[in-house]
Amino acid sequence: MGNTIEVSHISKSFNGQSVVKNISFNIAPGEVFGLIGPNGAGKTTIIRMLLDIIKPDSGEIRILDTLLSEITKDRIGYLPEERGMYRRLTVMDTLVYLGALKNKHSKERALELLEKMEMISHKDKKISELSKGMAQKIQIIAAIIHDPEFIILDEPFSGLDPVNMKLVKDLILELGKEGKTILISTHMMDQVERMCNRIFMIYRGTGVLYGSIGEIKSRYGKNTIFLEFEGELKNIHGVKKINYSGNYAELILEADTDTQDVLKTVAGCVRVNKFEISAPSLNEIFIQVVEGT
């Protein structure tokens, strides 16, 4: 069996402005794949082309071993980035209708998924009566109501509280275990870091990184220190850059710096709670790539 998705050399421009430039990537069956990049990089445009909502100017897309047709649409689930639903319909009616559009209407599966997402008590409510997070969970259910083989989730975590974020993550991992192929598009790179097998990183319409997360990270070496501390960090010799986030910091080292020297310097000025030598985060790799281009 070939790849679930084969994107070869697609380009798209709007009004002469190039939005996607000569992009190619593959997604293997059963893979959880991350399409990452900052806002406006062209992720949603790529997804719309995958779904044949818009056509690429050049290049070819093969999905589930064929060029996309109306029949293959039934095997794909899609959560769009911008959420919206029929406000006057009830949760159950919405799910049944959207399921029917995929040629599959199973009330049992709708109920089962509502149960799993802790939404069963809201099944007869109108969409307009739901909170934003609740509506988003309903949309995620709608995307998988027809038990698709390939699932596209555009920014699945935006606007979710930590409890719901965990629910959605667990659901994605479970779908992955069931052997579904999943494409997660997001600008929250730390979210996909722990979930995806491989990623494709896009910046201003151009692919900048592509491969398994482990392989990408090893390419950038173990030149990073994750630090949890109390106090105030000063300039440290041999450290190229510090990314602060509260009591945490990501220290990017110069090429020939000894991590033990850094530890000594740091221990001299702040109280160290955690010190970890690691590969850089995807965020940092992304920033390095972008600054390098």
Partner: peptide
């Protein structure tokens, strides 16, 4: 449907003409 983006879900299931 264009405003609330239901359109995208619909078009991921059916053709423009349908």
């Amino acid at each position: 449907e264009k405003e609330n983006r239901v359109m995208e879900i619909l078009l991921s299931s059916v053709s423009h003409k349908e």
